[in-house]
Design a protein around this nucleic acid. Structure first.
Lengths: 152, 152
DNA sequence: CACCAAATGATATGTTGTAACGTCTGCCAA
DNA sequence: TTGGCAGACGTTACAACATATCATTTGGTG
């Protein structure tokens, strides 16, 4: 297996890394974006845009509409600050923004908890298989549903 | 790569194989189920439950509610007659019902066309990686978004 | 200041999915 | 025969997820 070294951030360190990555991408780190990233990062399971909208609304004492949240989540996904979990219609903060590669998500059907694996070898094989079949600009979506160790 | 041989059905042959598989599973092959499978099988791209509801309604000259379609699609997925494409919130007929294994779907972002690859080697590696991380009863979701050969 | 671009707000609506309960039909046992 | 049960399907309502459109605010720049 191809070894791959990187830092897993959390808390303030993660927010700071996200801020750097976003600015690096030529985008602004606004208060709204900071709040949304902050809320997203508190989840250990995929968060829906509506969940986030509710919490950010509380935090600000003023309603923030889902569409504003979607806009910013889309930006986060585009800039690799967050990932969309397709099988959950929800989002996760990327624990290593700025480090570009495919992730494999594991989501527990019972408690909803999500974790991720990085295995470039595996994801590259999926990419290769798709390209072999004539696909280009491929974006692998690799998620595994099941029971986590705690719920098993 | 582990070689894997099976028959790819289409048209009436596919419907017949689906019927056999469903009965094999101890379920009934009703007119409604036949109609829904029939419509689903005409698509070469993932079909939403609402798409199917519309077409089946036409075919029967009587409104069939999405609700009913979902019930039957869930049954089809459980019995391996159909697959859910998570990244499209839609469904595909399984071209080899009765043959149980993980599929890798390729979906074109441009035209929506979907195809699938069977690579047991690859899917088993994904399973193994998840089990290694403490997950049980794993169900891999492997989809690749990109541009198909025609749209490239 | 006047202007512009980017970010966010507000409102409406479209799409996907589920819950709850009613009806129909076929079967079987009393 | 009749009563009761189970499975399939119908009907209605609603919840959850997502996008479109246009208005307003904000901060920089000539």
């Amino acid at each position: 297996m191809v070894s791959h070294q990187h830092h897993e951030h959390e808390g303030a360190s993660l927010a700071h890394a996200a801020q750097s990555a976003l600015i690096q991408a030529g985008e602004q780190w606004t208060n709204m974006r900071a709040d949304i990233f902050g809320v997203l990062a508190t989840f250990d399971k995929p968060a829906s845009a509506y969940d986030i909208a509710d919490l950010v609304s509380q935090k600000r004492g003023k309603r923030v509409a889902p569409n504003s949240v979607y806009r910013i989540l889309d930006l986060f996904v585009a800039t690799n600050l967050a990932r969309r979990v397709e099988s959950a219609n929800a989002y996760l903060a990327n624990s290593h923004p700025g480090c570009l590669h495919d992730c494999i998500f594991l989501i527990c059907d019972n408690c909803g908890m999500a974790t991720h694996i990085d295995d470039d070898n595996l994801t590259n094989n999926v990419r290769a298989a798709a390209e072999n079949a004539g696909f280009a600009k491929v974006r692998p979506v690799i998620e595994v549903r099941g029971k986590c160790a705690d719920c098993d």
